[in-house]
Computed example of a mutant assay.
Amino acid sequence: MKAIFENVRILSLAEQYPGPYATMLLADLGADVILVERPKGGDPARAYPPFFCALARNKRSVCVDLKSNEGRDQLLALAATADAVLEGFRPGTMDRLGVGYEAMKAVNERLIYVSISGFGQAGPYRDRTAHDLSYLAFAGHLFDRATGTRTDFPDVSYGDLSSAMFAAFSIASALFGRERTGRGTEIDISMTDGLASWMSTYLAPAMDGKVPFEILGEPAYGIFDVKGGRRITLSIAHEDHFWRALCALLNMPDAAGLVQADRLRDRDLLRTRISKALSAHSLDHWQPLLDRHSIPWSPLNSLGDVIDDPHLRSRNLFRKIARADGTIESHVIQPVRFGAWSTDIRRPAPDLGEHSTEVFRDIGIGSRR
């Protein structure tokens, strides 16, 4: 099968996490993603090879010194052949280097030019520096309804990943729009804007002076210990029928008729009863019973548990590919499955500048690796 973005060329100057994840998704769908890397060291994520390789499959790498006239000429020559450019520098950096949107549009009017930054290309905070935790805090993800703020925070970099998804979505959308209109476009991806969008169901009611929808206060929405040292999650958010099924399973008939308002009122007592009941038996005991009663739940898995899970194995989610030197890379494959389009892993993560000669030769200019 052909790939949906076959013959689409994307230049990626976005380093670390958001841009690389976005372009990995597009490369899996067939796009020719060319990493435009600095000659000395390349993407800083190369200092952590397992991290870099997890995101760099299906891509090629060229080295370009953007601080030199030759490098600027090389990038503009590449831009003339590209469908999209993705950059992740601080706002204004690409313009100062002479390779911003207007410079690239001058050589390619159909170009889709995407910028990812923490606070966007305009606004009072556009030059503020931060990393994922600070973006989460800024966009309200660390608020707590009871205390105002939380002291814990997720290990997963949601700001990076949400902006990556918005970037991939925007490129795909702009490619579709260009097919209809013939026009390229400039796209501004703000990590904090994206995280605020993810908070829509909290922020929209707050703007109207209303109380956001309650989930976390439900007594059967949380993490619970079971016998033997394992932990499980229950995720009964608001559905009375799931609550009734849980009460039947845990021998709590007196609580089965409680509606959400009652459950929220008595949450501490009910959570204590649930915890005591679940701790009496092991995961092996509860797993078939929770499934049989159609109760929303999951084991709290370690990374090893995820890798070994029979369901994910049956989905063929994990793949190993060999590099030219015989070493093996492991990958989590493209999660979106198309019946009519290929999403194969075609090549492992590239060495720094591995494809400089072939890429620049193909567009008729010289290169320095």
Rank of each mutant, 00 (worst) to 15 (best):
I4V: 15
N7R: 13
L11V: 03
S12D: 09
Q16L: 15
M24K: 12
M24Y: 05
L25S: 11
D28R: 09
G30V: 06
G41S: 09
R46H: 09
Y48W: 11
Y48D: 11
A56M: 06
N58W: 05
K59R: 13
V64W: 07
D65R: 12
N69S: 11
D73L: 09
Q74R: 15
A77W: 00
A77I: 00
L78P: 01
A79W: 00
T81K: 15
A84K: 07
V85S: 12
E87M: 08
F89Y: 13
F89T: 02
G98V: 03
V99L: 11
G100N: 05
G100A: 05
A103Q: 14
V107N: 06
D132T: 01
S134N: 15
A139Q: 02
F153W: 13
V156G: 04
S157N: 03
Y158C: 07
A164P: 02
M165T: 01
A167Q: 00
A167E: 00
A168D: 01
S170L: 02
R180C: 04
T181Q: 07
G184P: 07
E186A: 14
E186T: 03
D188C: 08
D188A: 09
I189H: 10
M199T: 00
M199Y: 02
T201S: 15
A206R: 10
V211A: 15
V211D: 11
V211F: 07
F213R: 14
F213V: 13
L216F: 04
G217K: 11
G217H: 03
P219I: 08
F224D: 06
F224H: 04
K227N: 12
G229T: 05
E239W: 03
D240L: 15
N251P: 02
M252A: 12
M252N: 10
M252S: 08
A256P: 05
G257P: 05
G257E: 04
V259H: 12
V259E: 11
V259M: 10
L264R: 12
S275H: 02
L283A: 09
P288Y: 06
L290T: 05
D291Y: 08
R292F: 03
H293I: 01
S294R: 14
S294Q: 11
I295S: 01
P296G: 08
L300V: 14
G304V: 01
G304R: 06
G304I: 00
S314V: 03
R323A: 14
D325R: 08
S330Q: 04
Q334E: 10
F338S: 12
S342P: 00
R347W: 02
R347Y: 02
R361Q: 14
I365H: 03
R368Q: 04
R369T: 06
